[in-house]
């Protein structure tokens, strides 16, 4: 089964990969990217996404709403379908999507708990460990905190990075991959980390965009249901909306 006409709501972190994989897919009638990092505040993320879903739901030219998201710190848990079903990959977060499956992600976590993952979207948002991230933090924090507190908060951020030892660039073959790999390498050098260039697997994202949506890899939330967290291999489940 290929995907029916659909609306796509996606995290900005996937922009390059989606541009590459969606191409001019005619079944994607409308695409909306939302800002990266919403998972920092899961409650806000849920509200923002639900508003985006509700805004699409009135369209008569679609039969599904595709969410290019994972569970994202439970930021998507509680999302409700309106008239159109929601389709979302069974993913804890975007790294699952970049690696192609939750099994690959689990294997990566086992094999390299000290790997920090870099992608074009993460790099562009300057949310990855490195000198640009620190400079951006310093600028933001300085608006609110005294210099001494800013120094302490920067040191605290660096301390959280100390548990990692590898900067892994996940390459899905986007046109800018070479440049972004170089950026990742520079970040690694600045922190004294190992650099790793890892080939990602576009299958999960490609199938999210184009189908098929098998239950094994995708969760469908039908009208009258909401997205629930399943703390096992399934990652997600559909709960009756009345239980909310």
């Amino acid at each position: 089964m290929d995907a029916p006409p659909a609306a796509l709501i996606a995290c900005e972190v996937f922009r390059d990969e989606i541009d590459m994989l969606a191409g001019k897919a005619r079944h994607l009638r409308v695409t909306r990217f939302l800002e990266i990092g919403l998972h920092d505040q899961p409650d806000r993320m849920r509200v923002t996404l639900q508003q985006a879903i509700d805004a699409m739901d009135g369209r008569d030219d679609i039969a599904a709403i595709i969410l290019a998201y994972g569970l994202c710190g439970l930021g998507t848990a509680g999302l409700q379908a309106g008239r159109h079903p929601l389709v979302i990959p069974r993913a804890h977060d975007c790294i699952t999507v970049f690696l192609g499956s939750k099994e690959s992600y689990a294997e990566r976590q086992r094999a390299c708990p000290g790997c920090y993952h870099y992608t074009p979207g993460w790099n562009r948002a300057r949310r990855v460990p490195g000198p640009d991230r620190l400079a951006m933090m310093r600028e933001e924090l300085s608006k609110q905190f005294e210099a001494e507190d800013v120094d302490f908060l920067i040191e605290s951020e660096e301390a959280t990075w100390a548990t990692y030892d590898t900067a892994t660039f996940i390459d899905l073959g986007t046109p800018n991959a070479g440049r972004e790999a170089d950026y990742t390498r520079r970040c690694a050098e600045s922190m004294g980390w190992r650099f790793e260039h890892l080939k990602g697997d576009p299958a999960l994202l490609r199938d999210l965009l184009h189908g098929p949506w098998d239950d094994e890899r995708f969760q469908t939330i039908r009208p009258g249901e909401l997205l629930g967290h399943s703390p096992d291999e399934a990652v997600m489940r559909a709960d009756p909306a009345s239980e909310k």
Binding site: L71, G73, L74, H92, D93, Y105, A106, Q109, H229, P231, D232, V235
Partner: peptide, 11 residues
């Protein structure tokens, strides 16, 4: 645990 991926380690 901060991550949904590591919650099973609680179990």
């Amino acid at each position: 645990a901060l991550l949904t991926t590591t919650m099973p380690a609680m179990k």
